[in-house]
Amino acid sequence: MTMVTPPHITHLARRERWSRAEIAFWLAWLAVYFLLPKHLMFAAQILITGLFALSLDLILGYAGIVTLGHAAFFGLGAYTAGLLTKVGVIEPVLGLFGAALVAGTFGFLTSFLVLRGRDLSRLMITLGIGLLLFELANRLTDITGGVDGLQGIAVGKVLGLFEFDLFGKTAYLYVLVVSFGLFVVARALMTAPYGLSLRAIRDNQQRAVAIGIPIRVRLTNIYTLGAVIAGVAGALLTQTTQFVAIDSFGFQRSADLLIMLLIGGTATLYGGFVGACAFLIAQNWLSSINAEYWLFWLGILLIVATRYLRGGVIGGMAKLAALRPMGKKA
């Protein structure tokens, strides 16, 4: 029996199929392990930041919730993972669960404050919550180490089997596996009816209500999930660097994250990773010349990007890809 898939189904399925570019993307990260052994720590940092940006993409890109304080969850995860080792929980995967739990709970509770208002009050409340946590970490020096950060974190073997080594090999694979795992979950959610309902809410809340979508429940839900993933990203950074800097909570981190997502492209799932990659490499290069230099060009990039770079790198590539078949026809 031959079944021809109708074009409208093919069109829907395009979003769901793993494309070659996607497979190549993840294989490239695997290749990094073998080809760039000297840069594994940096590569792990990019992956962690990419994962963090993915968590923002879920709530901002897919659900349309604007936030200036997403670093709150990253910082909570980072400190939770660090503090857990101090009380004897040194197994990293347990640390991730602890971080996820704390960040998720905080995300769930604050979602009710954040989702009440419109854009402006959302921005201010998330900004306020982020600054609040920063100040808290700054003041509670006995627990957090204050401005010096949380030091002396001893991380155990992953699952009691794999020890973190000096070259960051274990750390890199650990980060890659966790990031990929969470990515697969996020991807499944976004291609499922659930993800479609989020895109509907982002596009038009009024109509989303009118077709029967319980928007408050959905938004609370995705906000919490975004917090969980951000918390895990924070915990990964703590475990692989064995240090928590107070600027985990900083406004700069929230702002940088927005920028990365903007560079990469929102609501693409990969925008965060691509943006983190471009951002961190550029930052590494430019701030090695001069720290102010970096901030300056970052600012210029933002000013230009809001006007000319809609859709980010991924959006731009998609536009190019869309041009090609048209060129063939001509």
Binding site: D119, L123, E292, W294, G299, I300, R307
Partner: peptide
Amino acid sequence: LYKSTHLDQVLLTVGIIFVAIAGAT
């Protein structure tokens, strides 16, 4: 950007802040 989203306005003005900080420093 008057008619743009609030997010765009935030990003633009954060950009201006960054340039100003870098310039002043």
